[in-house]
């Protein structure tokens, strides 16, 4: 009886709208809410009619996801959705490639037990945690290749939560640079996780053809500097190269933003994960963590303003045509 009530009185966006849907609709930007709320409520009402609370919450969460995508500039005119859909598997692949360094480091240390024992407890937790995260990203990548995005998202969420927990445990006892600990363990994973969640469900499918090649290519590219480190013995210069090499694809994507294909932009977006792991911590050690955080906020605000401006321009063109 109660289930019937849940579904049968939500026809319009009024006082009878369920709380879950009202909250979900608040995630939509004001203009989108004005234009879409009525129909979203109508579809929601029919989709949840006679169904239980769990179904209502799932539908509401999906509406909230739609609203949040609109909030960050996705779902509008242009190629943003397609770029994010292509970038997510690339960024996961990049995380796997970069994680190989930690796997090798752990294996070498376990083969030389005294070396591993010399690590502080927090360093041990961070190293093992990052290796575990690499394994998680490898499984996530496999799931994405076969098109199982739902399972990939759940696993990635669990992995990021685990990494955050390990970091929270290890950070107070840290003996080394905290910026590097946060950068190594959490920043790239957080970024990739957000990318995975941002991909609209209807654009999430198996990674095929050239996209598979690009995923393999970006993983190999992430391994290249490690290989060069074995033959070029300039540790400081190579550390800078490893840290900032990912700026190049980002700049290339920006330069080709207007005429480049979706693939180039996706490669540039995925490269942010590479920069976050080593580049941002290196920059923090050269300047200060607060300066890097402030710079990050400015960059995100600029990107949001640019996206908002291009969306408005696209809307004007559409109205004029």
């Amino acid at each position: 009886m109660e289930q019937e009530r849940e579904g049968s009185h939500v026809g319009s966006h009024d006082g009878s709208t369920p709380a879950a849907l009202r909250l979900a609709l608040r995630t939509l930007p004001r203009s989108a809410r004005a234009a879409q709320a009525s129909e979203l409520a109508a579809i929601f009402a029919e989709a949840t009619a006679g169904r239980g609370r769990a179904a209502v919450l799932r539908e509401a969460a999906d509406v909230a996801g739609h609203g949040l995508r609109l909030r960050v500039g996705l779902g509008g005119r242009g190629r943003a959705d397609g770029i994010v859909a292509k970038a997510a598997p690339l960024a996961v692949s990049l995380c796997v490639g970069q994680g190989v360094l930690y796997v090798v480091a752990l294996v070498v240390m376990l083969m030389n037990q005294p070396q591993f024992d010399q690590l502080s407890p927090s360093d041990k937790v961070m190293l093992v945690g990052t290796v575990a995260a690499t394994a998680v990203w490898l499984v996530v990548l496999t799931l994405l290749l076969v098109g199982r995005w739902g399972a990939a998202r759940v696993l990635a969420s669990a992995g990021v939560l685990g990494q955050a927990g390990a970091l929270a445990w290890a950070l107070p006892e840290a003996t080394g640079s905290r910026s590097f600990m946060v950068g190594d363990s959490l920043l790239p994973s957080l970024f990739v996780w957000v990318l995975l969640l941002a991909v609209p469900r209807d654009m999430a499918g198996p990674v095929l053809g050239r996209d598979r090649g690009a995923a393999a290519g970006i993983a190999l590219l992430s391994l290249l500097p490690y290989g060069l480190m074995l033959v070029i013995h300039y540790p400081n210069e190579m550390a800078l190269a490893v840290g900032f090499m990912w700026v190049l694809p980002m700049l290339l994507a920006l330069a080709l933003a207007r005429r480049g294909g979706t693939g180039v932009a996706a490669f540039g977006l995925a490269s942010v994960a590479g920069l976050l792991r080593f580049g941002v911590p290196t920059l923090a050690s050269l300047t200060s963590p607060s300066a890097v955080a402030a710079g990050g906020v400015v960059l995100v605000a600029l990107a949001a303003a640019w996206r908002s401006r291009s969306l408005r321009a696209a809307e004007r063109r559409a109205v004029g045509s």
Partner: peptide, 10 residues
Amino acid sequence: RLRTGTLYGA
């Protein structure tokens, strides 16, 4: 099974 937000976005 498409949900409300996904369907609308699509």
